[in-house]
Structures are given as C-alpha cells and as structure tokens.
Write a protein that binds this DNA or RNA. Structure first.
Lengths: 205, 205
DNA sequence: GTATGCTTCAAACGCCCGTTTGAGCGTGCG
DNA sequence: CGCACGCTCAAACGGGCGTTTGAAGCATAC
C-alpha cells in the first residue's frame, strides 16, 4: 500500500489517517493500520507510545500544515488593499481542499477532522482549540474589518457556522447524490458554493 | 439510569442513543449499553437481533419523529400565504431542537446523527436517504417557490450546506466556547443565528 | 571486530468484544 | 392444573483488541 522507501513512522501515519477516516478512531484497529502500512504491529507502540498518541500525531501533522497555509493565504489576501469578503473566505476554505485526498479514493484528513468533531472528545477539542484558535482569531479580525457593523458575538457565531458547513461539505456528507464527478471535483464545487453562500450569510442583517 | 417501568426495549434504545452519542457506534459496547439500561446483556440480541440492527432502530425511532414534525411545521407555514424564507427555515430547523437532550447532559440524538454523517456508512446513508429524501424534496420545492430565480442545482448545493451547518451547530461542535449557557440555550441561540445566516446565504446572487 | 543503540520482529499477555446457549421465570389460556 | 409462550438470566463461546516482551537484525563508532 505504501512505497517501502518511506519511513515506518510516516507509513503508519498515512495508513492510520486513511483508516481512521473510513472506520473511525475506535473502529480502525492497530492491526488493520499496521497491516495496511506493511509494518509490524509493535511499531505503533514503539514509535508513538499508544493508539491515543498516534491519533494526536495524525492530527498534528496535518493541522500544522493547514493552519500555515491558511495564514499564508490570508496574509497574501490582506496585502491587497481592495480585498473583499470572498477573498478572505477563499483563504480559509481553499487550503482545506489541498490536503484532502488519499491514494485510494478516500477523503483523507478532512474526514478525519469531521470524525474528531463528532467525537466531542475533550482532550482532542482542547488540542484543536489550542492549535486552531489563534489562526481562527486572525481570520475573525480580518472578517471584522470587512464587516464593521457586525457585532462581535454575532460574528463568532457565524464563523462557527461557516466552519461546520465547511467541514461537512468537504467530507461529502450531503444527502444529495451528484453523479459523474470525482471527489476532487465535488470538493472544488463545494468550496465555490460554500464561499458564495457564506459571504452572503456573513453579510446578513 | 432508566425508570424501571419502561419496557426493556425502550430502555435499551435510550441508553444506546446516549452512549452512541458519547462514544460512537464502534466505541460504545453492548455491555455498556445494557449496564446503563439495567438490562441483561442478551436482551439486545433478543430484542434487536444484532448491534447493527440496534443502531438502525435508534435511528428509525427519532428520524420518523423528526420528519413528521418537520413536515407538519412546513405544512403549517405554507398554509399562511405570506410566509417567507425564515419561516420555512424555521420549520426545518426547529424540530431538530426538540428531540435533542438526553437526561444527563448529553446532546442525544442530534449528536448521533452527526456521528452517522461522519461514519459515511453506505447502508446507513441509504437508510437516511430513503427516509429523509422525500421530506427534503418537499422543503426544496418550498424553497424553490420562494427563490424563483435560483438554479435548481444551486439550490441543492445550498440546502446541503444548510444541513451540514445545522447538524454541526446543533451538536455543539464549535471551537468557540460560550460560557454560562446551558446546552438547550446554546441550541436555541444556534438555531436563531443559523436561520438568519442561512436565509441570507440562500438568497445569495 | 566487537560493542552500542536504534529499529524490527514473532509471540504472548490479559481483557473486552458481539453473539449464542439453555435453563429458569412469570403470566395467561385451555 | 398444566402447559405453552414471551422474556430474562448467568455463563460460556471464539475471536479481536491494545500493549508488552525479549530476542534478532543492522548499521555506526570505537
């Protein structure tokens, strides 16, 4: 499944991400993960200490990447003096598209992220809040500048709504089947619609 | 945990719903469920056949209720000739608030629903599509009448976004902590903000 | 060449899982 | 009464779980 020239550690992370996405954290066993990674069972505990810790590492790896890219995109947008709501939303949404697909048609990390929300695990939530929060606050202030009449509490509610819609749209949870398009196409379209929708939603009076 | 005068069947369903919400379908064991319900372990297989089937029954019970209430509310709204977008959205969102809380602070069925989305299980999805789909189509046509200029594909995308945001908001997945309010208050507020946001999003051009 | 330290390996640990079994229970009908 | 039926129960089934162990491999440094 994984090319043998990648490190054991990395192959475990890749397989774990794909299997957690498909079967959930409790539903995917270390035996499945290590088999998919062509790695000995004990390697997980050797490299990560425990399953719990492996889950955290799966997150850290991608969230760091996601946050970095978002903030980069935001900085680029804010450098342009005429930037609008759509641009900031794009900086928020677009990076989530990139780190998405795994090699075998799964939705990869975005779906893991959705799992994590659903888990409602306090530890995971704190971890996400710590790593996510500062970046989110930067976006909030970028939005606040573009929506000077919007109450701060109101803005935070709406950003939460955008995050939720983003997560669900990216993970392709919708009830409506859209035939003949790839997962990647689906997510591009979803991003497009989401940005338009969210821009109007944020401007609501 | 459950009053003893309820039937074994019902106590199992209640406990299962709460535990599936908290720990997921794979994460909550039948031993936990039956212990919480003060019921013999074998009772699950006696009354439901299998764990898989228990999960389905947990859904059927609430989804039937939810769909019925939504369609009732929609009918009431459509009876008024001057109804607007907010009213239809209210009919869609409000019933989700009602069937929410379990007795011990958990978020109950709404969180189970969010789990189901995250599971991405084909069988569950088909089940939801079959039971959900017709009602969703009724709402779609109610929205379409109020948004005559909106392309049909576009509308479906936006309704998917609304569903995602609704699920996410109801299950209280947000990153932002809001102190000093109960789960119920949180959901009332979430519904209010969601409706305002979604109405504007649906009207986006 | 041998000692060192990181990594991999097969095997085993005890535990919990979903499910099945067959005996036991109470109720109500013939 | 007796017997059938719906339900509950404790116990056991095989199997999969996360984790631990100690030996084996294999480079690098001395």
């Amino acid at each position: 499944m994984n090319a043998p020239h990648f490190s054991t550690r990395q192959r475990i992370l890749d397989s774990a991400e794909a299997l957690f996405a498909r079967h959930g954290f409790a539903g995917a066993s270390l035996r499945q993960v290590t088999a998919a990674a062509s790695v000995n069972l004990a390697a997980v505990n050797y490299h990560f200490g425990s399953k719990e810790n492996l889950i955290n590492e799966v997150f850290r790896r991608r969230l760091d990447e996601l946050t970095t890219q978002r903030l980069q995109a935001l900085a680029a947008v804010q450098a342009r003096p005429d930037h609008g709501l759509d641009d900031v939303l794009d900086a928020f949404v677009r990076p989530a598209l990139v780190l998405v697909p795994d090699e075998h048609g799964g939705a990869g990390f975005v779906r893991v992220l959705a799992r994590a929300y659903a888990e409602h695990n306090e530890q995971l939530r704190k971890f996400m809040h710590d790593n996510y929060g500062p970046a989110l606050r930067q976006f909030a202030s970028a939005f606040a500048k573009l929506l000077p009449d919007l109450d701060k509490q109101e803005l935070y509610w709406r950003l939460d709504i955008v995050s939720g819609a983003l997560t669900y749209a990216m993970a392709d949870f919708g009830m409506i089947k859209r035939r003949g398009i790839s997962e990647q196409q689906h997510r591009d379209l979803a991003a497009e619609h989401l940005i338009k929708f969210a821009a109007a939603g944020l401007r609501a009076r």
